[in-house]
């Protein structure tokens, strides 16, 4: 059924936000394409295939949906790691945050993000935003070399 979907790494510490995001992505059957990391450290473990993720197939996600305010390692630090790593630096990163603060917005663009999305408070708007992000980055966009290409595999 799903022909060419790619993995989404969702870095989000709030389980409610995770549930609502998966709910939104569920409408396009994108929910099972999502790996969830609950903090910055877990996100880095996933990206570097270490810790709990040492056995995962070695390919980068097609997009990282990154929250900024995270326990242990902040989103901004995760972003810095991604952008300074030879193998990861091309991976599309979309900031998905509650923060409208100018300094977050400017700093993350300076670090080379691909998009900055403020989570809408209204649920309808939120569902729309997440759906569009999911469809665009996991379906429409052609990810850089080295990304997961999931043709009919789990």
């Amino acid at each position: 059924m799903v022909s060419k979907l790619k993995r989404i790494l969702l870095v989000e510490d709030d389980p409610r936000d995770v549930e609502l995001t998966l709910e939104a992505l569920g409408d396009y059957n994108l929910a099972n394409e999502v790996v969830v990391a609950g903090d910055g450290e877990e996100a880095l473990d996933y990206l570097y295939c270490r810790g709990n993720f040492q056995d995962r197939p070695n390919a980068n996600p097609a997009v990282v949906l990154l929250d900024l305010k995270l326990p242990k390692v902040s989103g901004m630090e995760v972003l810095r790691h991604i952008r300074s790593d030879e193998k990861l630096k091309m991976t599309p990163v979309v900031i998905l945050t509650s923060s409208r603060e100018e300094r977050d917005w400017i700093e993350s663009y300076q670090l080379g993000i691909n998009a900055y999305v403020v989570k809408p408070v209204d649920f309808h708007d939120f569902v729309e935003a997440v759906k569009e992000l999911g469809v665009f980055w996991a379906v429409i966009n052609e990810p850089p070399p080295g990304s997961v290409d999931r043709v009919g595999k789990r």
Partner: peptide
């Protein structure tokens, strides 16, 4: 900006669901 908006989104999201 960060913290007060999140619970609001959750209230609205779960009410919607």
């Amino acid at each position: 900006s960060h913290d007060l908006r999140a619970p609001l989104r959750h209230i609205m999201g779960y009410v919607e669901l």
